[in-house]
Design a protein around this nucleic acid. Structure first.
Lengths: 206, 206
DNA sequence: GTTTTACGAGATTGAACGTTTCCGTAAAGG
DNA sequence: CCTTTACGGAAACGTTCAATCTCGTAAAAC
């Protein structure tokens, strides 16, 4: 063993990397992605917004793709779900959160901005799926699985499908393809339809 | 009146525009969009695939964006819905069609390919919404409204929401964000969930 | 046959952009 | 003070690509 177990890594010689530059570069990347899309996130524009020189970027990342994939990995989904309430209320709040997050000027605009790149660039897709989609989805899936066991959901329900039902419709509405806008009561109406189904009314508690 | 009512438009002097070049250019544009995305659909690549010179394109369109918007407008949704069957079967077939269309190597790959451009370029979004989304949606909406009137759907159901429930979940599955793949029985399972709802089972006919 | 317009192909221009390199300066250790 | 590494700024290189232009040829009207 050449290195003692107690060794702190010694600080290397010359001037240390600026931590604030690290953050400024990643922030600028995400902001540009969200505000103006993938093509507008040029190295020039990122460096200018971050207030750094281009070589300060290239000293940290080997190229534009690595930078963007890394920046996407910095997106952390905050995953607080108040499980105390009854399931219906929890799901209602989840839909509200989901629509709110996608109106967020930073976080919510990233996916639409990189969607076109996802197909061509699997590393972006993996980064986004791992850091943004999967964590949020796992929390909801686990919650729904417990609900199925407790009998609060239809027996044998496919939780993946339920997640899609909760997320798919509001996601469609956020694409610029001429669909009706999301209204104030959108979450309530959507969940009611999902909960009771679209089939003709049977015996149901009002 | 300067032009007689019976007049065919006289053919202008010189060599006429090649109609087959028109078609070849638009086809090549759509194919490249679908296969390799927006960025790969360069004028050079389009001209090469169409087997025409670049100025043959510029003689017809003022630039790349006009060409692409025009090509998108050529996408026609075929809208056969066999209304004879019962509603449940019709909706089942609709979901199957929808997932099939989005695996279509031409038609279905266009939207993912231009999604990133939609936000930046409203004319693409308008073209796609007008020619692809709206016609398909209108047929389904009309069918659902008639079903509501006949009592085949839950009273007071919001048909826009139902369309989203039918289209949103399969659309999510087709994005490269790590979701489970669409299986053979996907449409059946999805419609069953939508039809009966996710709430705990009440009295229901099996 | 002459004129007119379209054609495919290639050369050219100009802008955007990723990437590298160099400069003078700043911040750290020795 | 000297060396080392980082910094912001700017210049430069190479590539890609939209857009324009030129050339010899083809297809139509007259």
């Amino acid at each position: 063993m050449t290195a003692p177990a107690t060794a702190k890594r010694r600080r290397p010689r010359g001037r240390p990397r600026s931590r604030s530059a690290d953050k400024a570069i990643v922030d600028a990347t995400l902001e540009l992605l969200a505000e103006r899309g993938f093509q507008a996130a040029t190295i020039d524009a990122i460096a200018a917004r971050a207030g750094v020189g281009r070589n300060t970027i290239y000293r940290r990342w080997s190229g534009k793709e690595e930078l963007i994939a890394d920046a996407i990995r910095e997106l952390s989904a905050d995953l607080d779900m108040n499980e105390g309430d009854d399931l219906y209320s929890v799901l209602l709040e989840w839909i509200r959160d989901f629509t709110r997050v996608f109106s967020d000027p930073l976080f919510g605009r990233i996916l639409p901005a990189v969607l076109g790149e996802l197909e061509r660039n699997p590393s972006f897709a993996v980064a986004y799926a791992d850091r943004v989609v999967r964590p949020r989805r796992e929390v909801l899936v686990a919650l729904l699985e417990r609900a199925v066991e407790r009998g609060e959901l239809r027996k044998g329900a496919d939780v993946d499908q339920i997640v899609d039902l909760l997320a798919g419709p509001p996601f469609l509405r956020l694409l610029p393809i001429g669909l009706p806008a999301v209204t104030e009561r959108y979450a309530e109406e959507l969940l009611e339809t999902i909960w009771y189904g679209i089939g003709p009314t049977l015996d149901r508690n009002p």
